[in-house]
Amino acid sequence: MLESVEWGEYRLGDLFEIRPTKAYKYTNRDLFSFSGDTPVVTNTSFNNGISGTVGLDPTEEGGIITYSDTTTSDAIFYQPYPFVGYSHIQGLYPKNREWSKNALLYVVVSFRKSSNGLFDYGNKFNRAIASDMSIALPTRESEIDFEFMERFIALLNAQRLALLNAYLSVTGLKDYTLTPEEEQAVKDLEEGNVEWGMYRLGDLFGEATRGKRLKSEDRISGNLPFVTAGEADMGVSAFIGNDVEVFQPNTITIDMFGSAKYRNYAYGADDHVAVVHTQNLPKHAVCFITSAIHKVANAGDFHYGRNFYAKDAAPLIVSLFECQGSPDYGRMETLISAIEKLVIKDVVLYADREIEATKQVVDKTSKNKPI
C-alpha cells in the first residue's frame, strides 16, 4: 500500500499553530489533590502523556497533538479527549481546516520520526524549532492526501482490533456474563457479607525464594522473561537464554519496593525479587492473594533505603476471605472471576463498536480505490 504513495514535505508551522496548553497555576501536590476524572497531560512519555486525573474543568478541548518541550520525541501524543494542560506541554492546533483523529495520528508518527534523537533535557524542543520542522505526508496532486491517511490508519486499527478479537475468542474472555455464583460473590462483597481472616504468608506458602543477580552484560538473548524490580513492562527487563532457575507459572513476585505481581508464565528473576510459591492454587485465587500482598508490602515501608527481601515475605500478615477458620480460596476465585468479566465486558463492547466503526471508515474511503 505504501509503495505507490507520493510523498511531500510539509512545514509544521504552516499546518498547525503551536502554542502552550493552558494550565492551572497549582503546585503538583495541590493540582492532584482535586479528585476527579479529567486527565492531566504532563511531560511523561508513558500513558499517552497522562500522569493522573483531577476534579477540575478541562483547559483544552482535546482533538489535538501535544508534545513536551523538555523531553524527547517519545512524548508526542494525540489527545482525543478534553484535558488539563501542564507546564512545558505544547499543543498543535490545526490551521485552515478540520483534521480527523486518524489524520492527526498519522502526523504524530511523522512528527516523531522527524524529531527522533534530536531533543532531550539538555536540548530543548522549543516551539520555534518545532514550527520550522518538516514532516513527510502522503500527497496527491500537490496537496496532502487526507483520504489516504484516513484509510491507512483505519486499516491499521482494523488489524489491531482483529488481533484483539481473536485473543478474546481464544481465551474465552468474550463471555462476560456472570454466573449466579459470581453475581452472589459481588453482592456479598458490596453488602459486607463476607468473613475475613488474617494470615501469615509463610504459614500458607512457606518461605519465599530469592532470585539471583544476572548483570545486563551477561544476559544472553532468549525467550525466558527475566523479572527485575520496576513497574514498566511488569518488571520484565529482558528475555534471556541463560541457564538460570526457572520459576513456575501461577506464582507471585514481590520486588525490592514491595510491589507484588501475578505471573501466569515461567520466568527467571534477579536478586531484588522474591517469589511466593502459590502454584498449587487456582489462578483467580492467586490473583486475589497478589492484591492482598501488594496492599501490605507496598504501603511505603520498603524503598531504596530499605529493600524488600525474600525473608520479609513469610512474616507478612495478609487479609483473606475466610471460612471456618481457613482461607476461603473458592470464594476468592469466584470473586476475581466476576471482576475479570466485569472489566472485560467494557473491552469486548469497545472492540465490537470499534470494529464496526472502522469497517464503515474503510468501506467509505475505499470506494473506487483499490487497497
Rank of each mutant, 00 (worst) to 15 (best):
E3M: 09
S4V: 01
V5E: 05
W7K: 07
Y10E: 10
L12R: 00
L12F: 10
D14I: 03
D14F: 07
L15Q: 08
R19P: 03
T21A: 06
K25G: 03
T27G: 12
T27P: 06
R29I: 00
D30R: 07
L31Q: 01
F32M: 06
F34N: 03
S35M: 11
S35E: 15
S35W: 11
T42W: 08
N43E: 05
F46R: 14
F46I: 01
F46S: 05
N47M: 06
G49F: 08
L56K: 05
E61R: 14
I65L: 08
T70K: 08
S73E: 11
D74G: 03
A75E: 05
Q79F: 09
P80F: 13
V84D: 02
G85Q: 04
G91C: 11
L92N: 00
N96F: 14
R97H: 12
E98T: 06
W99I: 04
K101H: 15
S114H: 03
F119A: 00
Y121H: 12
K124F: 08
R127F: 11
A128N: 15
D132T: 06
M133N: 07
T139C: 12
S142R: 14
A154E: 14
Q159H: 10
L161S: 02
L163W: 09
L164D: 05
A166C: 08
T171H: 12
D175N: 11
Y176L: 03
Y176S: 04
Y176F: 14
P180T: 02
E181A: 10
V186K: 02
D188W: 07
L189A: 05
V194W: 10
G206P: 09
G206W: 09
T209W: 11
K212G: 10
K212N: 12
S216C: 05
D218E: 14
D218A: 09
I220E: 15
N223L: 12
L224D: 04
P225I: 02
A229Y: 12
A229W: 13
A232P: 06
M234R: 13
G235C: 10
V236S: 09
F239R: 03
I240T: 03
G241Y: 12
N242T: 02
E245H: 13
F257L: 11
F257N: 03
K261Q: 13
K261G: 00
Y262G: 00
A266P: 10
A266K: 14
D270Y: 06
H272D: 15
V273D: 06
H277E: 13
H277G: 05
P282F: 06
K283E: 13
V286E: 01
I293M: 09
G300R: 05
D301C: 11
H303T: 01
Y304A: 08
G305M: 14
P315F: 11
I317D: 14
V318D: 04
F321I: 02
F321K: 01
C323F: 15
S326M: 15
Y329H: 08
E333V: 02
I336M: 11
S337P: 04
A338Y: 01
E340W: 04
D346L: 04
L349R: 09
E354K: 10
V361Q: 09
V361S: 06
V362N: 03
S366D: 13
I371M: 14
